[in-house]
Amino acid sequence: MNARDSILSKIRRSRLSSPDDSARRATVTERLRSHPAGIVPARGAVEGEARIALFVEKAEAVFASVARVASSAEVPGAVAAYLRSKNLPQAIRRGEDPRLAALPFDTEPQLAVSVGPSDGHDLAGLSQALAGVAETGTVVLTSGRDNPTTLNFLPEHHLVVVSAEDLVGDYETVWAKVRSIWGAGSMPRALNMITGPSRSGDIEQTMLLGAHGPRSLHLIVVGG
């Protein structure tokens, strides 16, 4: 018997009370099909301005910085202002996301925008979030040409654009969205839930920002 069958049959022997396995199989099939939600914290059940406020509060509590702009036309200005405030060169790298591509970067002639994954030499990266989760101030990013995963981790500064209409109360709503885009039972190659900038507490439990991932996470909330 190969390792797979040996492990599975060992498990099965301890699980089966009768040779009829059909009830167990039906339970599993049904759970995978219906994916019932567990307890969803009431905290996220807020809408409109209250939801945005909760998202901002939770994100700031984990040391992300947040800027709010009225429309996407103001995003390039917000990017440039952030880079200036950190004394960084006016340069940023982004993916091919159509919403990022449509931003009027020509309003910031100083700002050099390059496109593609990061090779580790970019100081700042710009991504568009699939969603923001108010429950914990988390942003959700998905891999692909639109928003290459390397941009989430290699640059020292990660700027993430979140549309107010993509803000949700809880993780469960994110999964509904993922299923509507990728189909039931499927996922993008990488889905990153990011809650604040990278940190470590490994030396004497002292919490320090900027471990291997970005030292700062700057969220730009558009609209709302």
Partner: peptide, 18 residues
């Protein structure tokens, strides 16, 4: 919530740059 919760499904896809 920890800073990074990462969901990985399979290898690089046809349109993946990384």
């Amino acid at each position: 919530m920890s800073v990074y919760t990462t969901f990985s499904t399979g290898p690089r896809r046809a349109d993946d740059p990384d």
